[in-house]
Amino acid sequence: MKRLFALCLIVLAGGCSSIEPWVSPFERNHLADPIMSFNKAPVSSSYLHHVYQAREGARGAEGGSGGGCGCN
């Protein structure tokens, strides 16, 4: 039982260590390209969501969140 507890502690401690980014900042030029944005034109995508929502029963999770380029 003690060994199991120790093993859990090791695993949990390992989870606290910092995670090295697997995509370096200098490798993110593709991700920073405007074509890689989930919401390139907010005013247009908002309107299109409105069109869908007005005519469909589903609602929510339409997107519009920012891209994940991690370039800043």
């Binding site: 969501h49 409105h50 029963g57 609602r59 519009g64 994940g68």
Partner: peptide, 20 residues
Amino acid sequence: TRSAIFIALCLTVYGVQAAV
């Protein structure tokens, strides 16, 4: 659905951005 649209659009307009 009408008000849900407003709320959803409200969330959509500013959405969740990366930290910039």
